[in-house]
Amino acid sequence: MAHVEVDYPRLYWLSFAVAGLVTLVRAVVQGLSAVTLQTLVLLVAGMVVFGTAARGLKHPEASGAPTEPTPLLLVAVLGATVYSVFTLATIV
């Protein structure tokens, strides 16, 4: 069986970057019909999450992200993935 190298810090930050982008898309789509407080909160949350993830992706090893498969990594990546998939499903 082939050995697969996984860059765990990059995977961690990439999952958060996708979740941040999905949140921004949701805020924009929701804002097309009416701008509410929820829309503004989603917009700010998406920008913060995406901005933090983008900084983490620049230097993933020095960012404090898990460097090996840990429960934190598993929960964070699965949580961000499930959030992104279900949020995209509600947008479409």
Rank of each mutant, 00 (worst) to 15 (best):
R26K: 13
G20H: 06
G64V: 06
P60Q: 03
V18A: 04
A65T: 05
R55S: 12
A65P: 06
A53M: 10
T36S: 09
A62G: 10
T67K: 12
F50D: 00
A17E: 05
L14A: 14
T39V: 15
V25Q: 14
F16Q: 06
V25P: 01
Q38T: 09
V28I: 13
L42S: 08
T39Q: 15
F16H: 01
E61H: 14
T67M: 07
A53C: 08
S63G: 06
V44K: 02
A54N: 04
L24Y: 00
S15E: 02
L14N: 14
V18G: 02
V25I: 09
L57V: 04
R26N: 04
W13Q: 02
A65Q: 08
M47D: 04
T36P: 07
L24T: 00
V22L: 10
V29E: 07
V18E: 01
A45E: 06
L57C: 05
V35P: 13
V25C: 12
T39S: 12
A45F: 06
L37S: 09
A27T: 00
V25N: 13
L42M: 13
T39R: 13
L43E: 03
V22Y: 03
P69N: 11
W13H: 04
L37D: 14
A45D: 15
S63E: 05
Q30Y: 10
A27R: 07
L42I: 01
G20Y: 01
G51Y: 02
K58F: 14
A53Q: 12
G31R: 10
L14M: 09
P69S: 06
G56Y: 04
G56E: 02
E61K: 11
T39E: 12
G51W: 02
A54F: 03
A54G: 15
A62K: 07
L57H: 04
L21M: 13
L32P: 03
L37F: 10
T23Y: 00
P69I: 15
V18H: 02
V48R: 05
G20I: 09
A19T: 09
V28M: 05
S33R: 15
G20Q: 04
G64F: 12
S33C: 06
S63M: 03
V48Y: 00
A17K: 07
V22G: 01
G64A: 13
V18F: 02
A65V: 11
T52L: 02
A45P: 06
E61V: 10
V28Q: 08
G64H: 10
T52H: 08
W13V: 01
G20V: 03
P66T: 08
T39G: 07
L24F: 00
A62E: 11
V22N: 05
T39M: 05
F16Y: 08
L57K: 00
T52W: 09
A17T: 11
A45H: 12
P66F: 07
A17Y: 09
A19L: 15
T67P: 00
R55V: 10
A17M: 05
S15C: 01
V28C: 04
A45L: 11
V41W: 14
G51S: 12
R55I: 07
A45Y: 08
G31C: 13
G46H: 09
P60L: 08
F16K: 12
L32W: 11
Q30E: 14
L24R: 04
G20P: 02
Q38F: 14
M47V: 14
P60V: 12
T23V: 07
Q38W: 11
G46C: 11
